[in-house]
Write a protein that binds this DNA or RNA. Structure first.
Ligand SMILES: [Mn+2]
Ligand SMILES: [Mn+2]
Ligand SMILES: [Mn+2]
Ligand SMILES: [Mn+2]
Lengths: 142, 142
DNA sequence: CATCATATGTAGCCATGGCTACATGTCAAC
DNA sequence: GTTGACATGTAGCCATGGCTACATATGATG
């Protein structure tokens, strides 16, 4: 139905990319928050800001948006906590990120460059693409 | 020097992704403008807007930004023209885009999904990653 | 040459995601 | 208990990239 050939669901391929971008910040933030919990036992906003390369103001305001999306909880001057939903998102984002990095390395991209490129690429990989990547890495690395 | 391990040049890997995103619109626009020139002999703003899945207002304003970047020229009620610089960017963006699509297809991603995912992925692929993709597609497709 | 559909342009709204400058809170060390 | 360093929060700025509603231009058709 409709004059639409692009796969996803709505419309134009560019819409899919824009949708990816609107989820990107949430994914990167919860992944970083989970990392800091592992590394430091807690996630303070200043550390989070440094990790993401933004000012603490930006981090603070973005975290407030994540609260309204139900991904994290905060209380004044306290560390940032993930909700169940946030933890789940962090887990899947991390898994996806690792698939992409490993894949890039397995096709011969130097590790540092794979790390850098994967940070953007990860958000645009549909399940089918991830499946192809995973399959390739596995058969390549025995 | 510095406490920096990430590849590109500045700082944090997230900075690289943000830089990619700030070039993305320009790349997609000039590529689409060049396509419409091929297909229709000229690029009218309304067709461009439809192609990109945005309102004509958004297209118009974005084109104005491209003018100030020296990528296109406009005059009122006339078709949009690419500058030499714009044509060059369109050419490299198109070539890069094709490398990414062909590569995704060659690892087994269905064509429609490869088309959709590549629209975002293309902007995050450094020269090294493109080289690895090109090499892989070539050796795989004989 | 008047009319009208369509294209183009403009005004003004919104959310996001950056920032600096400043204000306030917290906590450890003296 | 004060003090001072550092963390956190707030006010308010900016650019980008979306939009709707409305105004005007253009060009084909009667
Ligand atoms: Mn990322
Ligand atoms: Mn992207
Ligand atoms: Mn493209
Ligand atoms: Mn694109």
């Amino acid at each position: 139905m409709a004059t639409n050939k692009a796969g996803t669901s709505q419309d134009n391929v560019f819409h899919k990319t824009r949708r990816d971008h609107s989820n990107e910040i949430a994914e990167d933030y919860v992944e970083a928050i989970a990392q800091l919990h592992s590394e430091d036992g807690a996630c303070r906003v200043t550390r989070l800001a440094r990790r993401l390369g933004v000012s603490h103001v930006t981090a603070n305001r973005t975290v407030a948006r994540l609260v309204s999306r139900g991904l994290v909880t905060t209380s004044p001057y306290q560390p940032i906590e993930l909700t169940d939903s946030g933890r789940r998102l962090a887990r899947t984002a991390k898994a996806r990120h690792e698939i992409v990095i490993d894949f890039l390395i397995s096709i011969g991209v130097p590790a540092e460059i794979a790390t850098a490129d994967s940070e953007g690429i990860e958000h645009h990989c549909s399940p089918e693409t991830l499946k192809a990547m995973k399959h390739f890495s596995n058969t390549r690395n025995h």
